[in-house]
Amino acid sequence: MSKQEDKKDRRDFLFTASYTVGAVGIGATIWPLIHQMNPDESVKALATTEVDISQVESGKSITVLWRGKPIFIKRRTPDEIQEAKAVALKDLPDPQKDEERVKEGKDEWLVMVGVCTHLGCVPLKDKGDFNGWFCPCHGSHYDISGRVRKGPAPKNMEIPKYEFVDSNTIKIG
């Protein structure tokens, strides 16, 4: 290589290196500015909530707030559980067995996000044609397992991540 070309290569390397190192810096600067909009520590700390279910009688339900959304916790009677299990999958717009929506050995307890999967309204309990919930906004009907049976809602009401801490307490999230 001639001395001229050699010099040119060194100069190009210098400039390229400067640009690259500079770009890394700019990227590192931009990240905190974006990440600060993500949930902060106090919000993340409330990401889970523990609920005392000892006072919920058979056939009754309660609603609690979790991450700003309503959670329906229903304690089903044996008849209601039977009814939920008996529904044929072909009758469901969003086929899902009742067993998949409850915890093993705890099928009394239905825990779901009380938000209609159509456009986000809160369905009313003990209403509708399927002995479950009814959403007044656009007429979706949910059954005793929280599955959509009729109306514009595309999916069954969501089951959140939860677990039984003990027989009287569930931890959601």
């Binding site: 905190p32 500015l33 990440h35 600060q36 993500n38 902060d40 520590e41 106090s42 919000v43």
Partner: peptide
């Protein structure tokens, strides 16, 4: 104080 403690990179900003 919330910015300093809880917001991601809040202390830095």
């Amino acid at each position: 104080e919330k910015i300093m403690r809880d917001v991601n990179y809040g202390w830095l900003i």
